[in-house]
């Protein structure tokens, strides 16, 4: 199958007061159409920078980012983004927040069709009846659900999630993981998820990419195969423990605490 996202030999350094700060160094990531790529790595290694590159919000110093067989030169309306901070607009209702991208993208749904699309997404994530509420009237988990709807409303090919569940408590987070699978079953998209939570990465991803410490390169890739619909219980099988242990070990290497080749 064709790769929907291809990141080839990407290098990038930020200009800072203290000089050049190399952040990405020879990054290689490929995600096939409909794939779900979870990216983990040490804090500050360059994960958010990676999302900004895929979204076309910035250009790499070296290397190429390809979406759908086209090189990314700038932002494109076929991308949806959600962050740790749900950044909902307080002066809009939840429904109006979700409809925001439709006002921007060329050929976006208008009027009644836009309302229906937003309402159906809100219902899908369990926010039926909250359409007319203000963001401040919702809990953190609900706001993140609304933010997810906004990222999906214009039917993007690529969904970029930068630690969207990072600020939520463990139970709310697990609820949202399941919502994520439900949404994925109804809305086709290819996802890149940045996370700090290894369990989240193996529960949601069909591919887990471990980045090295800064400057980040692709250190390790784990393919996840799943038979049947995903269940939270799957996280407590011996197979899952083994995957988590492997990833844990890779993170320690990335943090420079373990040497490659030495067993965990």
């Amino acid at each position: 199958m064709e790769n929907l996202i291809d990141i080839k030999g990407v290098r990038h350094a930020y200009d800072t007061a203290a000089g050049k700060l190399p952040v990405l160094d020879g990054l290689e990531v490929s995600v096939k159409e409909g794939g779900f790529c979870a990216v983990v790595g040490p804090s500050g290694c360059g994960k958010s920078t990676l999302t900004r590159l895929i979204a076309g919000l910035m250009h790499p110093d070296e290397g190429e980012v390809w979406l759908h067989g086209e090189q990314v030169k700038g932002p494109r309306s076929t991308v949806g983004m959600a962050f740790q901070n749900p950044v909902l607009l307080e002066w809009r209702t939840i429904l109006q927040n979700v409809m925001l991208p439709l006002e921007i993208v060329p050929g976006g749904l208008k009027g009644k069709a836009a309302v229906e699309r937003a309402e159906s997404l809100l219902a899908l994530v369990g926010l039926e009846g909250f359409e007319d509420k203000r963001p401040s009237e919702l809990s953190g988990g609900m706001r993140q659900r609304a933010s997810l709807c906004r990222a999906l409303v214009h039917q993007p090919d690529v969904l970029i999630l930068d630690e969207p569940f990072g600020a939520l408590d463990a139970f709310t987070r697990e609820d949202l993981w399941q919502t994520m699978h439900e949404v994925k079953a109804k809305e086709p998209f290819t996802a890149v998820l940045i996370t700090h939570d290894l369990r989240e990465s193996i529960f949601l991803g069909d591919q887990v990419v471990v980045l090295s410490g800064r400057p980040a390169r692709t250190q390790y890739v784990m393919e996840i195969t799943r038979d049947g619909p995903p269940k939270l219980d799957d996280l407590y099988t011996p197979e899952a423990s083994e995957r988590l242990a492997t990833l844990r070990h890779q993170i320690e290497i990335a943090q420079g605490r373990a040497e490659e080749g030495v067993s965990a």
Binding site: A55, R76, S77, V79, N85, V87, L89, L100, V105, R150
Partner: peptide, 22 residues
């Protein structure tokens, strides 16, 4: 916050649109 900007900018919105909408 840069995320507010990015939400619209990633969709190809112009600076003017970002100003009026957000």
């Amino acid at each position: 916050e840069p995320e507010y900007r990015d939400i619209l900018r990633s969709l190809g919105a112009s600076q003017t649109t970002i100003f009026w909408k957000i």
